[in-house]
Amino acid sequence: MTEVRTAEADPPWEGLQGNDLYAACMRAARAGDRVAMDRLVAELTPLVWHVARANGLDRHTAEDVVQTVWLALFSHLDQLHEPRALAGWLITTARREAQRPYGRKTPPVPLTEEMAERVESTQPAPEAEAVRTDRDNRMWRAFLNLPQNCQDLLRLTVLAGRAEYHSVAEALRIPRGSIGPTRRRCLTRLRTLFEAEGGSQ
């Protein structure tokens, strides 16, 4: 009896990692496999998100960029000739989209005093939130002052356990052996810039 194999029960990307995983999912997605599409989104959305946020976008606008990038990919799957170059394509596309003049802002819903009294806050105390926001802003300013190659490298390697060094090297077109030393230099430079912004370790 012939064994029936489905992409969901026995996916071709089973056991693969990094660019091999992305390439297998890309090939399956081109054949219409929605499970493969979902796997790509789950694996690589953090990367697209980091690129958008690193370009200074707020959370709402960054979400728009993430959605736009995935729509662009799935609308033109056949135009990406080298599936193993997917991570690099996402970095380039996300950076380009993030630099568009996104002017749409969602106006906040007014909160009356009566409503505020009835709603139990789950947010941190204002003082703690102010400290956290200030720290995050300093870190983003320091990050944006890094050279572009450092920004790209840190965005990819921040996906610990997902983006292996060989995937990062292929996406950025640099020797695999240089990833570790370059990353350490970038982190040292980021720490220096952060401290210059008034931050602390």
Rank of each mutant, 00 (worst) to 15 (best):
E129K: 10
V131E: 01
V119A: 00
A128N: 06
D152A: 08
R155N: 13
L156A: 04
C150A: 15
E129G: 01
Q148M: 10
V131S: 01
V158T: 10
E127N: 05
V158W: 13
P147Y: 05
R118A: 07
A116I: 04
V158K: 14
W140L: 15
D136Y: 12
E129A: 13
D134Q: 14
Q148K: 15
A160K: 14
A130T: 01
S121T: 13
R118H: 08
T122W: 02
M139L: 15
T133D: 07
F143V: 11
N137T: 14
E120F: 12
A128I: 06
L159T: 02
V119W: 10
M139R: 11
N149F: 04
G161L: 11
N149V: 04
V119Q: 04
F143H: 12
M139W: 11
V131D: 01
A128T: 07
L159N: 05
Q148R: 15
L144T: 11
F143Q: 09
D152K: 07
P124T: 07
N149L: 05
L144N: 09
G161A: 02
R162N: 05
P124H: 06
R138T: 00
D134Y: 05
Q123P: 02
T122S: 04
S121Y: 10
E120V: 15
M139P: 03
A160W: 14
G161N: 12
R138Q: 09
E113S: 08
A163C: 12
P126W: 12
L156W: 06
F143M: 13
R162Y: 05
E113N: 10
L159V: 00
R132W: 09
C150Y: 11
R138I: 05
R141Q: 09
A160V: 14
L154V: 03
A128S: 07
A160Q: 13
A160Y: 15
A125S: 12
P124W: 08
A116P: 04
F143Y: 15
E127L: 07
V131F: 08
N137I: 03
L159W: 06
